[in-house]
Amino acid sequence: MNNQSQRSGAIAVIGRPNVGKSTLVNALVGAKVSITSNRPQTTRHRLLGIATFPGGQLQLVDTPGIHGEQGKRSGKAMNRMMNRAARGALEGVDAAVLVIEAGRWDAEDGLAFDALREGGLPVVLVVNQVDKIKDKGALLPFIAKVSDGREFAAVHPLSALKRKGLEALVDTLLGLVPEAAPQFGEDEITDKSQRFLAGELVREQLMRQLGEELPYATTVEVEKFEEDVTGRQLVYRIDAVVWVEREGQKAIVIGKGGERLREIGTRARGQMERLFDAKVFLQTWVRVREGWSDDEAALRSLGYHD
């Protein structure tokens, strides 16, 4: 590809909830910039992952999953805001990646494709989680069925989790962005602050450990984020508040004798130390704010935007 080193542009990563969009963004960036769990709606914010390669730079817009009409009507303010954030990600990008699960295409996948088609963007279909398909012979017929009547710039079967098939996808995406200088430095991996990432890493552990009990009733606010140098050691001192909507939920998050909250904090701190390459002192509290997930003003005060 000629002049590949001068290519730089933005790619929206779109799909229904829980198909591996954030896992794909992290794999391409080469670092954990977007949290993951096996629960839908783990990603609640529009986030930019910056992936720099010898051939150019991709600014990957990770988005909340697009929900169906039923979910939009019956969902809370947070769900409506997430839908607007996902659709708004199509503004100002050069192309889009539609991520689907290998062997599955449903109404929400169709909704995501329709949103991209209306935007007039080149669409690359990523068939993720191919490692889970036992009958590999069924993959090509599935791709043919999905592609029937739908125009894709390219189709890439891959496994984001196992980082298989990424090189070919990168080549395709670089070919869809314009000739331009990189927008970010080689060492930059996201447009979000470390403070934001710290809150997300705490919320990731809430989703992973409490997804069955409190799937969407929690959020995290970082009240203090201070940087210090002790000797030659970089240290971050972080205070994070876990917000819930009812007293009973507070007890669930804290756990017997505070054991569950300590485990959440320990795991989140470990993730922060790996990402920030620094020592982290993390303190967590749980507080009640009734109805925060269905109050747009409360959502904005907690850092949610559309």
Score class of each variant (00 low, 15 high):
3 N>G: 10
4 Q>S: 13
7 R>L: 11
8 S>N: 05
12 A>C: 07
19 V>P: 02
22 S>M: 06
22 S>P: 00
26 N>F: 02
28 L>D: 01
32 K>E: 15
34 S>E: 14
34 S>D: 08
36 T>A: 09
37 S>P: 01
42 T>Y: 05
44 R>Y: 04
45 H>S: 05
46 R>G: 12
46 R>M: 06
51 A>F: 01
52 T>F: 13
53 F>V: 06
54 P>M: 05
56 G>T: 12
63 T>V: 13
68 G>K: 14
76 K>S: 15
77 A>W: 06
88 G>E: 02
88 G>D: 01
88 G>R: 08
88 G>V: 03
88 G>F: 01
90 L>G: 00
91 E>R: 14
92 G>A: 04
94 D>H: 12
97 V>L: 06
99 V>T: 07
100 I>S: 07
104 R>V: 14
108 E>F: 02
110 G>D: 13
111 L>I: 15
114 D>W: 04
115 A>N: 00
115 A>G: 01
122 P>F: 03
122 P>Y: 00
123 V>H: 00
124 V>E: 01
127 V>A: 03
137 G>N: 11
137 G>D: 10
144 A>V: 08
145 K>P: 02
148 D>C: 10
151 E>R: 15
158 L>D: 06
160 A>N: 04
169 L>W: 07
170 V>R: 12
171 D>E: 15
177 V>H: 05
180 A>Q: 08
184 F>C: 09
189 I>R: 15
189 I>D: 09
196 F>H: 02
199 G>C: 06
201 L>Y: 03
204 E>R: 10
208 R>E: 09
210 L>I: 04
216 Y>D: 11
216 Y>Q: 04
217 A>W: 06
220 V>G: 00
221 E>G: 04
227 E>Q: 12
235 V>Q: 14
237 R>A: 06
238 I>A: 07
239 D>I: 07
244 V>I: 14
247 E>Y: 00
248 G>Q: 03
252 I>L: 00
253 V>C: 06
256 K>S: 05
257 G>I: 13
262 R>C: 02
262 R>Q: 12
263 E>Q: 14
266 T>Y: 07
272 M>V: 15
273 E>F: 08
275 L>M: 13
276 F>D: 10
287 R>Y: 01
290 E>H: 08
291 G>H: 07
305 H>V: 15
306 D>R: 13
